[in-house]
Design a protein around this nucleic acid. Structure first.
Length: 148
DNA sequence: GCATTTGTGGCTT
DNA sequence: AAGCCACAAATGC
């Protein structure tokens, strides 16, 4: 299984992801174009759909290290496109503490695919592991409309 | 209203 | 096992 890193130029910015032939095992949101090769795989298809405003079910992604992250993933995926939840909401839904959510989300190896950007703090936008700038753009994109 | 403190639980090393 | 953290509610000012 060879890991391959693909890049994808979204309307919101440059990103790259790791496709190992079967599942997506990593993704990162970049600041500048990476200029790598563009893959032809479910992840790319998903990104295509997502950035045209019609999100698809998630492509196969690597199983998180802990089962907790799996539950977290479910909770996050339950957030509809264009909606947001607070860390507290998710925490309550998982019967855990909000602070744990912050840590768990920050440790999320698959931002964007798992919509951690739709989770905001009750006091503001919260944080984002791959740059707050991305999070703002994503939220603006999802809530503001698909005409980019 | 803003700054600090504290309860809290899973994550990383 | 210890420290870290992308929160939130409760105080203190």
């Amino acid at each position: 299984m060879q890991d391959e890193v693909f890049s994808y130029a979204s309307p919101l910015g440059e990103l790259s992801y790791v496709w190992d032939g079967k599942v997506c095992s990593g993704i990162q949101l970049l600041e500048a174009p990476a200029g790598g090769s563009v893959g032809n795989d479910p992840v790319r298809a998903w990104l295509d759909a997502y950035f045209s405003g019609a999100p698809l079910p998630l492509p196969p992604i690597a199983i998180p290290r802990s089962s907790f992250q799996a539950s977290m993933r479910e909770a996050l995926l339950a957030i509809p496109f264009g909606e947001t939840r607070t860390y507290g909401e998710i925490a309550a839904s998982l019967c855990t503490a909000p602070r744990a959510m912050g840590q768990a989300l920050g440790a999320n190896p698959l931002p964007l695919l798992i919509p951690c950007h739709r989770v905001v703090a009750v006091t503001g936008i919260g944080g984002f592991s791959c740059g707050l700038d991305w999070k703002r753009r994503l939220l603006g994109f999802e809530s503001g409309g698909t005409d980019f």
